[in-house]
Design a binder for these strands. Structure first.
Length: 630
DNA sequence: GTTAGGG
DNA sequence: CCCTAAC
């Protein structure tokens, strides 16, 4: 089985870059991320751990009954501690007793770079303390997590328990089911998915409901039909559950009590609930001072954003109530009796789901379903391993300046919230370079500003590309066929190694067969529509283009397309027109000013000649060849 | 649907 | 590469 970048189709010996070349924006974001605060670190830590577990899970079938791992991650203020028993079995000993005050990407990466060769059942709990204004001693207030331990099944529960005394408590949960499907038929689509034909990778339920139920009756949870994923596309990967804000200082005690109760939730229930790959994240976190967010995974719309003037917030574990009255329960609202002014200054927002990086998976049609499942799992794990960070997207644009206020960013009125989106991005590009070629290779999809326009609930898409030239029609519905082989004359692909990096990023457009369908919202699709991945023209393509223009002129782009780029479906005639435009420009500037893949001067000379000719003979766009071609 | 040009 | 006006 081979997974590769879509653009790599037709290219043998696909060279997996050690560091996939992400668009500048992505790289910039990655760098920037390192400068961000604890929240992001905590967030990424969770993602990294999730990846770790998934990875292990993948290899866990042989020894599923082995000793249970019991570990703890604790982020204590600025520090991170991971305690994990028998962690050495998976080779991350060095990191996992690390207490480091510089939580860096490297650490997070280390956390998740185990080769996973050993099977370990995992049951982790993460305690995270996000310190804001609290003095250092407040770190001692961190609630150390305790696992939902118990049975030896292979589910894993994470808990985020954050405490900052001067801000009340914030507690959230990341629930990650690390179980493996025992049978293939567990990958059928869940009947309750919103969209048939799509596959969810995520737990659909609110963890709050889940845990609540778990607290009451583990039987009920155990009997629940599991969320599923399967088929070819994984549609949704993770939803961050609600968390509720209250400014009532007195509330956090009860909240903490709830949290403790959740902690005791039997891990077995997790396991029994989820077969297959199921990731549910319940998370609560303070985004910025005086701001709180209620999130749920119910859909896409952004409908509430609660901003508290208080510094106390706590988790409302009852998911059944999180959609209503959240804002009203903020003591700030109560303390300042629901003045319109107060309400106007607040934005309530419900994050129905996060968009996570797209993955591309390529498998031969002769691959087994089981191997496909493995591949998908690998894909997901790969992304999670790299860690994630959150991007905020307003009207299709990422808000990169974290210092902007919501108002400055246009996140203030409900009308604006329609175009508000969140996206999870890989913190660091995966570097599967060590893999042998036949191993599944998964790359995080590109981000750039392209994906920033993606539909907000386009959580996770995995495009499966067939090597078969003409797959069965029925298959073509589900399998994205790649016809992106370079056009006729571009076989040489001298820039191949360069391209192979860029290839790592291949977005799925909403029009693609495997595109993700918005769950609840359709109106903002245009604003969040996805931008195509940049695909530089190869020299061969340029030559083909020049040739065609020489013969057809500059006003017949559709003919050019049909003549020389008929099979290059990713090149529209507009693309060709644009490329010609840039070619002319390139030819007119000095070589020193040119950038990108060098175009042979000979070709540029032909560009200039053709451009000059057709500028003069614009009216002679007949079939007659220009004189310089005769 | 195409073309042309600005962004 | 996107968007849109103009055809």
């Amino acid at each position: 089985m081979m997974i590769k970048n879509k653009r790599g189709s037709g290219i043998n010996g696909f060279d997996v870059p050690s560091i996939p070349k992400a668009p500048r924006s992505a790289r910039r974001a990655s760098i920037k991320r390192k400068l961000e605060g604890h929240q992001v670190c905590a967030f990424d830590l969770l993602a990294a751990v999730a990846g770790k577990l998934l990875q292990e899970n993948e290899n866990s079938s042989a020894s599923s009954n082995e000793t249970e791992a019991k570990d703890q991650f604790v982020m204590d203020g600025d520090s991170v501690i991971l305690e994990r028993r028998n962690w050495d079995r998976v080779g991350d000993t060095d990191f996992f007793h690390k207490k480091d005050r510089e939580i860096s990407d490297e650490h997070l990466s280390a956390l998740s770079t185990s080769d996973g060769s050993e099977n370990v059942e995992t049951d982790l709990r993460i305690g995270i303390s996000v310190r804001t204004d609290a003095p250092p001693k407040m770190c001692n207030n961190t609630k150390t997590a305790h696992h939902c331990k118990g049975s030896s099944d292979d589910a894993a529960g994470f808990e985020i328990n954050t405490t900052a005394q001067d801000e009340g408590q914030r507690t959230g949960y990341l629930l990650l089911n690390n179980s493996r499907p025992s049978q293939d038929d567990q990958f059928v689509s869940a009947p309750d998915l919103h969209h048939e034909g799509s596959v969810k990778l995520v737990g659909k339920d609110d963890l709050g409901k889940y845990i609540s139920r778990c607290s009451k009756s583990s039987k009920a949870m155990a009997s629940r039909s599991p969320p599923h994923f399967g088929n070819i596309r994984v549609r949704k990967f993770a939803g961050y559950k609600y968390w509720k804000v209250s400014s009532k200082l007195g509330d956090h005690d009860s909240c903490a009590g709830e949290g403790e109760r959740h902690v005791n939730c039997s891990r077995k229930t997790y396991h029994e609930r989820d077969k297959g790959l199921d990731i549910s994240l319940v998370k609560k976190r303070k985004l910025c001072d005086q701001s709180s967010v209620i999130t749920s995974d119910r859909g896409v719309s952004s409908e509430s954003f609660s901003k508290s003037h208080e510094k106390c917030l706590h988790v409302n574990k009852n998911s059944n109530t999180h959609l209503h009255g959240a804002n009203e329960e903020c003591s700030s609202s109560k303390n300042h009796p629901a003045s319109d002014h107060t309400r106007d200054s607040q934005v309530r927002l419900s994050i129905k789901s996060f968009e996570v990086p797209e993955l591309l998976v390529e498998v031969p049609v002769t691959a087994t379903v089981g191997s496909l499942k493995t591949t998908v799992l690998e894909a997901v794990s790969s992304v999670l391993r790299g860690g994630l960070h959150v991007e905020v997207i307003v009207k299709g644009k990422k808000i990169r300046d974290d210092t902007n206020t919501l108002m400055q960013s246009g996140i203030c009125h409900s009308s604006n919230l329609d175009s508000l989106g969140f996206m999870l991005e890989p913190s660091s590009p995966q570097a599967p370079s060590s893999r042998c070629q036949n191993d599944p290779v998964v790359m995080p999809a590109s981000d750039d500003n392209k994906s920033s326009k993606r539909s907000p609930d386009s959580a996770l898409a995995i495009s499966v590309i067939s090597d078969e030239p003409s797959p069965a029609p029925s298959l073509s519905k589900q399998v994205k066929i790649d016809h992106d082989a370079a056009p006729t004359a571009s076989d040489a692909l001298p820039e191949r190694s360069q391209e192979s990096k860029a290839l790592a990023l291949f977005p799925v457009t909403s029009a693609d067969p495997l595109a993700i369908v918005p769950m609840g919202q359709k109106s903002n699709r245009s604003e969040l529509a996805q931008r195509r991945t940049r695909r530089p023209f190869s020299v061969g393509e340029v030559e083909a283009l020049v040739q065609a223009v020489e013969e057809l002129g500059t006003g017949r782009w559709r003919d050019v397309k049909m003549r020389s780029f008929e099979n290059a479906e990713h090149r529209t005639y507009v693309d060709l027109k644009d490329k010609w435009k840039t070619l002319v420009h390139t030819a007119e500037i000095s070589p020193q000013q040119r950038r990108g893949q060098p175009v042979p001067q000979e070709l540029l000379n032909r560009v200039l000649a053709a451009h000059a000719y057709w500028s003069q003979h614009h009216h002679v766009k007949s079939n007659a060849k220009p004189h310089f071609l005769r």
